[in-house]
Structures are given as structure tokens and as C-alpha cells.
Amino acid sequence: MKHVDLNLLTALDVLLSECSVTRAAHRLNLSPSAMSRTLSRLRIATGDQLLVLAGRTLVPTPYAEQLGEHVHELARNARAILQPAHRSLDIATLERTFTIRANDGFVELLGASLMATVTQTAPQIRIHFVSKPDKDAQPLREGMIDLEVGVLGTTAPELRTRLLFRDRFVGICRSGHPFLKQVTAKHYASYQHVVVSRKRQLSGPVDDALGLLGLRRTIAMVVPTYANAMQIARYTDLLGLVPHSCVGRDLLGDHAGSAGIQRFELPVRTPEIKVAAIWHPRLHADPAHRWLRDTIFAICKNTVP
């Protein structure tokens, strides 16, 4: 459409509606001479006179009559497309499935709260959680998932992010474990450990911190999820390492040990964990997607310890 001026479509629609250059000019806030020049351009573009004199009035040619309703519909649709989108949303009646990629810890921590909110405010929305084996941005780019929840660190520059909460690593062990009598770095390194890894990567921030002290821990078992690590630590003498948010409120304070497992602050410092929502820019202005993001943010703010 190298030489097509779509403004002519609106002008043609008004001219065919009014059958008057003067009235068409008034509707489009143009001078009669400018409207007359536009009619000349339309005649050249279509190869038809479109409007011709019949006495002192203009009447449409057979071709113009044929175009009439079709042009009006095209002009209306063009205006609708080329204007800011209408962003009203009735979340109570919206039927949609959102696919969220997140690790098991997030699902266990907030999945039930998210479902309770959805059931109450948007009962026809479905939430589909899928596993998070890596930080690959392609599923977001290709629309295979709507939202990702995970540690900040994506290398895709176009992705949008919003910090949900800050977390940190804590140690876990069975209730009454002898390690709890002496929580030191040296004592910590002397025990065997269970670690969580999906890529067979056995070292992490805690190992770096131990290394600065000339210490090294022994890894006896590798499991794929934090839930697995907590179960192993509950029934063995292995020490585990999980995000604080995974431990749950019921294991904090006076209730520590009530589920057969106890958390402890690590005897070394590890970097803070920043958990964020991540999405593709094409969904940024979508009102339903914005509702999902805001809902998850609110749940994290009110739930994460």
C-alpha cells in the first residue's frame, strides 16, 4: 500500500453520507476548498467521479452507491483499530486459562491462596502451573506461558519484571538434631548435606561462603525439589538448604519442630534472593493479565513471611 492514504477512507465515507462537499467539510473540520481537493484525489484514486451534479446538488454514481455501506464499515473498523484499545474488564465473567511457570516451592506456598482468590472473584478463570526447569525466555516469547515466577536473572532484555518478595536461604534439619547445639560454620560443614539441583550443579552460594573460611561441606544426596529436601532432612541426619519462604509459617517461632523439622539461620552469609514475576511486553497492557499480576503481588505481600 505504498501510495494509499487511509485518511481518504474517512473522507469518502463522509462524502457519500452527506452528498455535499460543504457539509462533509464541516464534519471533518476542513475548509470547503480542502474538501473539494480531497474529492478530486478520491476520483483519481478510484477512477470514478463518485459524486456528480444533478441540478444544484451532488448525487452518487452507481459505483459510489455500490461502495457506500462497504466504505462505512471499513472506515468504522479502521477507526476502532487505530484508536487506543478499550480496556474494560469484567473479571467475574472472564473465561481464560493462565499458564504460569514456577518452581514447586512457589506453588506450595501460594497456590492455594491464589486459587481461593480466583474462586471468589474470577470463578471461570483456570490456573495452569507448569514446572520451571530453567530460565529460558522462549516460552514467554512464543506465548507458551503467560507468566513466570522465579529468581531475577533473565538475560532477555525485552521481558518485563516486578519484584514480588525478597527471600533468603535457611538451613533445615530434623527436630532434635545434634547440630542445633552448636550452629557454627565448622560444625555445619562437618555434616552431610542434601541439596536441590535440577542441572546437577552441586555448589552454590553457601559453598562459596564456606570456601572463604577454608571449609567444604559433603553432599550426600541430590534431589529435584525443595519438598524432597525437606522430607529427607525430616527423617535423616542430613542437613538441608531451602528458601525461607518454603519452610512455612507453621514452622516458625513457637511452632518450630511441630512437623518434625526445624529451620536454623545459616552460620555463613549468602546473597538475598529476589523473586519476581516475569512476562512478555505484548501482555503488559492486557487488562486480564494485569489483574493476574496484581493479584499475585497482593497475595505475596500478605502471605510471604
Score class of each variant (00 low, 15 high):
residue 226 Y to I: 00
residue 120 Q to Y: 05
residue 188 Y to R: 00
residue 151 V to G: 11
residue 266 L to F: 01
residue 252 L to I: 07
residue 20 S to H: 09
residue 2 K to Q: 10
residue 269 R to Y: 04
residue 302 N to A: 15
residue 160 R to C: 15
residue 246 C to S: 13
residue 235 Y to V: 14
residue 63 Y to W: 09
residue 173 C to I: 01
residue 141 R to Y: 04
residue 14 V to K: 05
residue 303 T to Q: 10
residue 272 E to D: 12
residue 271 P to L: 08
residue 79 R to S: 11
residue 243 P to L: 05
residue 202 L to D: 13
residue 146 D to L: 09
residue 163 L to D: 07
residue 103 N to K: 03
residue 288 A to D: 09
residue 199 K to H: 14
residue 33 S to I: 08
residue 88 S to P: 01
residue 7 N to F: 08
residue 152 L to E: 12
residue 114 L to M: 15
residue 148 E to S: 11
residue 109 L to I: 01
residue 224 P to N: 01
residue 303 T to I: 11
residue 146 D to W: 14
residue 11 A to R: 15
residue 61 T to H: 11
residue 62 P to H: 06
residue 198 R to Y: 05
residue 236 T to N: 06
residue 4 V to R: 05
residue 211 G to Y: 13
residue 189 A to N: 08
residue 142 E to W: 10
residue 218 T to S: 15
residue 54 A to N: 14
residue 274 K to N: 10
residue 254 D to F: 09
residue 291 W to M: 08
residue 112 A to H: 07
residue 124 Q to F: 15
residue 26 H to D: 14
residue 201 Q to I: 12
residue 20 S to F: 07
residue 6 L to D: 03
residue 251 L to K: 01
residue 69 E to Y: 09
residue 127 I to G: 12
residue 180 L to R: 00
residue 83 Q to R: 15
residue 206 V to C: 02
residue 10 T to F: 03
residue 286 D to S: 10
residue 136 D to T: 09
residue 156 A to C: 15
residue 147 L to C: 08
residue 171 G to P: 00
residue 165 F to L: 03
residue 177 H to L: 00
residue 147 L to P: 11
residue 180 L to A: 00
residue 301 K to P: 04
residue 58 L to D: 02
residue 279 W to Q: 12
residue 134 D to Q: 07
residue 245 S to Y: 09
residue 305 P to R: 07
residue 170 V to E: 05
residue 89 L to Q: 08
residue 203 S to M: 11
residue 10 T to I: 09
residue 257 G to L: 01
residue 43 R to F: 04
residue 28 L to G: 10
residue 211 G to P: 07
residue 141 R to A: 10
residue 166 R to M: 10
residue 47 G to N: 08
residue 126 R to S: 15
residue 208 D to Y: 13
residue 303 T to G: 02
residue 286 D to Q: 11
residue 282 R to T: 12
residue 42 L to F: 00
residue 240 G to Y: 00
residue 56 R to K: 03
residue 31 S to Y: 03
residue 190 S to A: 11
residue 105 G to I: 05
residue 303 T to K: 06
residue 260 G to H: 13
residue 248 G to Q: 13
residue 221 M to K: 12
residue 233 A to C: 12
residue 106 F to K: 03
residue 236 T to Q: 06
residue 139 P to I: 03
residue 125 I to E: 01
residue 200 R to D: 15
residue 118 V to A: 06
residue 153 G to T: 05
residue 293 R to N: 15
residue 85 A to F: 04
residue 152 L to K: 04
residue 76 R to T: 13
residue 32 P to I: 13
residue 244 H to I: 11
residue 222 V to K: 06
residue 255 H to E: 13
residue 273 I to V: 14
residue 132 K to I: 01
residue 12 L to A: 05
